[in-house]
């Protein structure tokens, strides 16, 4: 339905504002002083870009082929992503980076958990088979790629 699509686009704008605010805060914070340490992003976080991208691709396929099975497969991949994110955080804290270690890790934990919360919302929307869910889901895939790219660039 048209309404749903409009709403999802608006929702994405709002989410985009939250993440842009945090991104610009991050750039400002990084430029402030010498205390910024480049964060060694766990490799798993990179793989996770692929997991979400795959989930998006499967979802798109499901939409084209009108296949319920593929839709559920995409949802399952989303859940896998959340599970793997937990492992990412574990890896990171084992490497000595907790929330308060350095502004870089503070921002990483904040951005990734905020993103994860949005992904969980997306999983709920997929489970409810909402018609505009794929649009939102693709944006979440892109958002994770963006976050990882951001931290890679800041190294």
């Amino acid at each position: 339905m048209k309404r749903q699509t409009t709403a999802v686009i608006l929702l994405l704008i709002a989410v985009g504002m939250v993440f842009s605010a945090l991104t610009s805060a991050m750039f400002v914070r990084r430029g402030l002083g010498g205390d910024w340490i480049a964060l060694p992003i766990p490799a798993l976080a990179l793989w996770n870009v692929l997991v979400l991208a795959a989930s998006s691709a499967v979802l798109e396929l499901s939409r084209r082929r009108n296949s319920r099975t593929l839709w559920w497969a995409a949802t399952a991949l989303g859940m896998l992503f959340v599970g793997l994110q937990l492992q990412v955080w574990r890896d990171l804290s084992q490497a000595g980076f907790t929330v308060s270690t350095n502004p870089s890790s503070s921002f990483f934990y904040l951005l990734s958990s905020l993103h994860a919360a949005h992904v969980i919302g997306g999983i709920a929307a997929l489970a409810a088979a909402a018609s505009a869910a794929p649009l939102y889901w693709h944006a979440m895939s892109a958002l994770w790629a963006y976050i990882v790219l951001l931290f890679r660039c800041l190294q």
């Binding site: 989410v15 504002m17 308060s100 502004p103 503070s106 904040l110």
Partner: peptide
Amino acid sequence: LLAFGVLLAAGLLLLMDRNLGTS
């Protein structure tokens, strides 16, 4: 739509500074 997200982001950062030891 464009403004409240920024306030929300600021609020989260402030909460973290207060409760999680960030700077």
